[in-house]
Computed example of a mutant assay.
Amino acid sequence: MGIAERKGREKAERETLIVATARQIAEAESWEAVTIRRLAREIEYSQPVLYAHFSNRDDIVAAVALQGFSELAAQLGEAVAKAASPQDALLRTSATYLDFALSRPALYEAMFVLPTGLLFGDAETRQELRAGFDAITVAVAPFCDHAEVVAETLWAALHGLAELERSNRIRPDLRDQRIMLVAQAIVAAKA
């Protein structure tokens, strides 16, 4: 292994450590606790080393968000694959999305609430972001002619439900009924 290869591997390992540590701190304490100074102390590198990898905290949040989008896409894809029918796929996708959002609050916040510079609905949209949207599109496609618009609408509805439940503004014991209502609206739209 050459010097350049070794340095590249070491840089990737440091970036992985920075992102993993940021994610751990955020899940344990909140994103407010994640600072460059704190990360440097936790991973035992100087702040300039962190700045050599990420220009600011928002870039670290974006790296965490990209991991989250990959994880969400995998779970949504699995939900669609396990479905027994198109309506089951729609219900499973919706439930999986909400379960993901509610079980990983700091990760979900990095993905959808905090500033990251990650763009959706753009020609430059990264594949990690696109994959989750594609899984939602597959779930709604049997029920509509304009799957991308319906997928965006379902995503918006699920995001709203997730945020309302995360902030204790709606009752969690009625989640299944809300999912059913959203799914029924999509199914009925085709009729």
Results as ranks from 00 to 15, higher is better:
Ile186Asp: 07
Gly77Arg: 04
Tyr45Ser: 01
Glu124Thr: 03
Asn56Leu: 12
Gln184Cys: 10
Ile18Lys: 02
Pro142Gly: 03
Pro115Ser: 12
Val80Arg: 05
Glu27Gln: 10
Asp145Gln: 13
Arg169Pro: 00
Leu17Thr: 13
Ile60Ser: 09
Pro105Ser: 08
Glu109His: 05
Ala139Trp: 01
Asp134Gln: 10
Thr21Ser: 12
His53Lys: 10
Asp173His: 15
Cys144Asn: 05
Pro172Asn: 09
Arg126Lys: 09
Gly68Glu: 06
Cys144Thr: 05
Pro172Met: 11
Ala106His: 09
Leu119Tyr: 02
Gln184Leu: 08
Glu42Gly: 11
Arg130Val: 10
His53Phe: 00
Ala4Ile: 06
Phe112Met: 05
Ile170Gly: 04
Ala110His: 02
Glu124His: 10
Pro115Thr: 01
Met111Cys: 13
Gly77Gln: 14
Leu164Asn: 06
Arg126Ile: 08
Ala74Trp: 01
Ile25Ser: 13
Gly160Glu: 07
Ser55Asp: 11
Pro105Ala: 15
Met180Gly: 08
Pro115Met: 01
Tyr108Phe: 15
Thr125Gly: 13
Gly160Asn: 03
Leu164Thr: 10
Glu44Leu: 14
Glu5Lys: 14
Glu71Asn: 14
Phe54Asp: 11
Ala191Arg: 12
Phe143Ser: 01
Phe54Arg: 14
Ala73Asp: 09
Ala33Thr: 04
Thr137Lys: 09
Ser167Asn: 08
Leu66Thr: 09
Glu165Asn: 02
Glu42Pro: 04
Phe143Lys: 00
Ala101Ser: 05
Ala141Trp: 02
Ser70Asp: 15
Asp59Arg: 14
Asp176Gly: 00
Ile3Asp: 14
Thr116Cys: 14
Ala4Asn: 13
Val19Ser: 07
Ala65Glu: 13
Ala141Asp: 02
Leu118Ile: 07
Ala52Glu: 14
Thr153Ala: 00
Ala63Leu: 08
Asn168Ser: 15
Ala139Tyr: 01
